[in-house]
């Protein structure tokens, strides 16, 4: 496996979809604790009104990319040391998460992270913390969110006792309460039963179609993610190694082989598959 050439130039600027980019990440480099280089020049574009997905194996830097966008990197002693994150034309790299939420980017963190010792409604109202448009508008949105997730309406106890799927819905609902211009979803399928994964992705698609919610989606479940997204990026070892439209990626032999579990007629056993994978990595 050839090691990446040092300090490669930025990958060709991809041009997903037709819409105007609301977010463009340009060749960012992220360092944790001043020494650990995690992202080595990541670029991506999210057009307004689209769902874009970021795929890749564990430790590729998908979550770090999201945190670089939302500013949560700072809470983990990380820093964008090069490149820029442009959101609606403004460079937001290294701003505090509070500022970035106010600008309209809301991250739903991995593992839901709802406030367990609060009720469903309190969690939802917390999502509207940064809003300034008055109690009536927030109440209206609260009703709207509960209409999208009718089963949350029945849950009056503490949110910590909800099922995993309900917690994920609550986390997405809480993000909707902030009325973000861009929502970052980190592994919404994690730890959920297949049926619930389907339901959650159905909701993500529905929100996108009905409310025009622009979404950047990080997933391990490539099949579901590519089913929902119009454009996808694939990351490995802190770099974007491939990108393309939904159709392109679904068609690509390597993607099929590595992420969709199909293709590769020459596969004999899982053991062979593993070594084959290692050889054929992009980097």
């Amino acid at each position: 496996m050839a090691h990446a050439t040092a300090e490669t130039t930025a990958p060709p600027t991809p041009s997903p979809g037709a819409g105007e980019s609301i977010l463009s990440v340009n060749n960012i480099e992220v360092v944790y604790d001043d020494v650990i280089l995690v992202l080595r020049g990541v670029s991506l574009e999210v057009p307004e009104g689209d769902i874009v997905t970021l795929l890749g194996p564990n430790g590729a830097g998908k979550t770090t990319t999201l945190k670089a966008i939302s500013g949560l990197l700072r809470t983990e002693n990380g820093e964008v040391t090069r490149g820029e994150v442009r959101f609606m034309g403004e460079n937001i790299a290294n701003m505090s998460p509070e500022q970035i939420v106010r600008k309209g980017i809301f991250q739903v963190m991995e593992g839901r992270r709802i406030v367990e010792d609060m009720t469903v409604v309190e969690n939802l109202r917390l999502g509207a913390y940064t809003r300034k448009d008055g109690a009536a508008a927030i109440k209206r949105d609260l009703d709207m969110v509960l209409d999208y997730f009718p089963r949350l309406r029945e849950r009056t106890g503490l949110a910590g006792y909800l099922s995993g799927g309900e917690q994920q819905m609550l986390a997405i609902g809480r993000a909707m309460m902030a009325r973000p211009k861009l929502i970052l979803l980190d592994e919404p399928s994690m730890g959920l039963a297949p049926l619930l994964v389907k339901e959650v992705f159905g909701i993500i698609r529905k929100l996108n179609q009905e409310l025009g919610m622009t979404t950047l989606l990080v997933e391990q479940n490539a099949k579901m993610a590519l089913g929902a997204a119009s454009y996808g990026y694939i990351m490995e070892s802190g770099k974007v190694v491939m990108d393309g439209s939904q159709a392109d990626l679904l068609d690509n032999e390597d993607v099929k082989e590595f992420y969709l579990g199909g293709g590769g007629e020459h596969r004999k056993s899982f053991k062979n598959l593993k070594s084959y994978k290692r050889r054929k990595r992009w980097l």
Binding site: T75, R113, V115
Partner: peptide, 12 residues
């Protein structure tokens, strides 16, 4: 409950 969660909601 959790400071990082609070920050992700825009709380200072």
């Amino acid at each position: 409950f959790n400071q990082q969660v609070a920050q992700s909601l825009g709380i200072s």
